[in-house]
Simulated scan of single mutants.
Amino acid sequence: MYVYLLTNPARTVVYTGVTSDLERRLYEHGQGLGKGGKFTGRYQCNLLVYFEAWPDAPQAIAREKEIKGWSRAKKERLTTSFNPTWAPIDLQTWDGKATTEN
């Protein structure tokens, strides 16, 4: 299970989600599918900037709810600690390390 944060190209919106299949869910967001697709589609929020893996659904859902309750500033600190430049993460090429490139 994964908890993830998406943003838009201007980095003005942060969306928090949970899924068992991160690649499939990112595709769905990009295509505007599902309930989350309506929000992410409206705000062009389709850039993965943060994610974390959890061993089971209850833990992942609890973490998603925790993050959703945070202020924007706290979500920014979490993302920046993992991905300092907020560079979009491509799961096909990601090497497991946060990038420092702009």
Score class of each variant (00 low, 15 high):
Met1Ser: 13
Tyr2Phe: 15
Tyr2Ile: 11
Tyr2Arg: 12
Val3Cys: 14
Val3Ser: 09
Tyr4Phe: 12
Leu6Arg: 02
Thr7Asn: 03
Asn8Gln: 08
Asn8Trp: 00
Pro9Gly: 11
Ala10Arg: 14
Arg11Phe: 09
Val13Asn: 12
Val13Lys: 14
Val13Thr: 12
Val14Ser: 07
Tyr15Ala: 10
Tyr15Thr: 06
Tyr15Gly: 07
Tyr15Phe: 12
Thr16Tyr: 03
Gly17Asp: 07
Gly17Gln: 09
Gly17Phe: 01
Gly17Ala: 10
Val18Pro: 00
Val18Asp: 05
Thr19Ser: 14
Asp21Met: 12
Asp21Leu: 11
Asp21Gln: 13
Asp21Ser: 14
Leu22Met: 02
Glu23Val: 13
Arg24Trp: 09
Arg24Leu: 14
Arg25Asp: 01
Tyr27Thr: 09
Glu28Cys: 10
His29Arg: 04
His29Ile: 05
Gly30Asn: 02
Gln31Glu: 15
Gly32Val: 04
Gly32Arg: 08
Gly32Glu: 03
Leu33Gly: 03
Leu33Thr: 05
Gly34Gln: 08
Lys35Ile: 09
Lys35Asp: 10
Gly36Gln: 04
Gly36Pro: 03
Gly37Val: 01
Gly37Phe: 06
Lys38Cys: 04
Phe39Asp: 09
Arg42Ile: 01
Tyr43Ile: 07
Gln44Tyr: 07
Cys45Asn: 07
Asn46Glu: 09
Leu47Gln: 15
Leu47Cys: 04
Leu47Ser: 09
Leu48Val: 00
Leu48Pro: 07
Val49Glu: 01
Phe51Trp: 01
Ala53Met: 12
Ala53Phe: 10
Trp54Glu: 09
Asp56Asn: 15
Asp56Lys: 14
Asp56Thr: 08
Asp56Ile: 00
Ala60Asn: 07
Glu64Pro: 02
Lys65Arg: 15
Glu66Lys: 04
Glu66Met: 03
Lys68Ala: 06
Trp70Ala: 03
Arg72Thr: 07
Arg72Gln: 10
Arg72Asn: 04
Ala73Val: 12
Lys75Ala: 14
Arg77Trp: 04
Leu78Gln: 01
Leu78Asn: 05
Leu78Glu: 01
Thr79Arg: 07
Thr79Phe: 05
Thr80Gly: 02
Ser81Val: 08
Phe82Met: 13
Phe82Cys: 11
Pro84Val: 00
Thr85Gly: 06
Thr85Pro: 03
Trp86Thr: 01
Trp86Asn: 07
Ile89Ser: 02
Gln92Thr: 11
Thr93Val: 09
Asp95Cys: 08
Asp95Gly: 15
Thr99Lys: 04
Thr100Lys: 08
